[in-house]
């Protein structure tokens, strides 16, 4: 198998070919991973919400409380102000889902679903819907439309500024999707490429291949640790940017 084919096979989504009688179910590797992550998240969150007597349960409950407090004081209120409090549950879900999706890619035999533009696009669309909902909720339908024209704009500039502002909002939603997708995809491609260096050099000379294993594995470990950081960072950035964009719509004058 060619190097590019190997990378594509590991990164791209593929149909699992599951049949239900004569029906072909469109279940792919990414869909299955997403189901798995959802189930794990559901179990973790249910356990977090309960106060048990064991040390583990109490620890998990405290962790859950700290997490929600961090999301409220570190992301939602600085970005959206006190008006963002009703949306706290959305941000908590979003952060955990993205984080678990990013981390899943670091587990062998699991797929990084956030390296699929359809997944990040769907997440960005949810955030876009939240931004529009915030605008309509806090300004009313017509008021939200009026926020697309900054105060003090001369009337003859309105036909130019209005479409620019609408496209800016669309671009922001696209940026949310592209940023997460590009970061996760490129990170995993680098990881795979580093690993494949050993086999490429090994095809030329077995001794050289064995010699390249040590530096390649060193780089691989470094990149894996970096990916671990990126997994947290990108979940944080996606959530923070959603709150900032929603806050800009809420507090636009």
């Amino acid at each position: 198998m060619e190097v590019s084919e190997t990378i594509a096979h590991h990164i791209l989504d593929h149909d699992l070919g599951i049949m239900l009688g004569a029906w072909h179910l469109p279940i792919t590797a990414h869909t299955l991973t997403m189901f798995g992550i959802s189930v794990v998240l559901l179990v973790v969150c249910i356990l977090m919400s309960r106060t048990g007597k064991s040390v583990f349960m109490r620890l998990l409950h405290t962790l859950g409380e700290e997490y929600v407090a961090f999301m409220r004081d570190g992301i939602v209120i600085p970005g959206m102000g006190i008006e963002g409090k009703p949306f706290l549950s959305y941000f908590c879900t979003l952060f955990l889902f993205i984080l678990f999706s990013n981390l899943a890619g670091l587990i062998p035999q699991m797929k990084t679903i956030t390296s699929n533009i359809a997944v990040t696009g769907a997440l960005a669309l949810c955030s876009g819907a939240l931004i529009v909902y915030c605008g309509v909720k806090f300004h009313g339908g017509w008021g939200f439309v009026k926020t697309f024209v900054p105060g003090g704009t001369p009337w003859w500039l309105v036909p130019l500024i209005f479409p620019l502002e609408v496209i800016s909002l669309i671009i922001r939603v696209c940026v949310l999707a592209i940023r997460l997708f590009a970061n996760m995809l490129s990170g995993h491609m680098v990881l795979l490429s580093l690993l494949l260096i050993i086999f490429i050099i090994g095809q030329m000379s077995k001794i050289a291949g064995a010699g390249s294993a040590v530096p390649a594995m060193g780089l691989e470990i470094f990149m894996t640790l970096l990916e671990l950081l990126v997994a947290f960072l990108q979940a944080y950035v996606f959530t923070l940017l959603t709150s900032i964009y929603a806050g800009l719509v809420i507090h636009s004058h």
Binding site: I167, R179, V237, L240, I244
Partner: peptide, 21 residues
């Protein structure tokens, strides 16, 4: 930290604006 996130996103916003249009 919020400024850092916004500033680094501006570059991507610029690129996406050119690409999309």
């Amino acid at each position: 930290p919020r400024d850092h996130v916004v500033i680094t996103t501006l570059g991507l916003e610029f690129a996406v604006a050119v690409g999309l249009c």
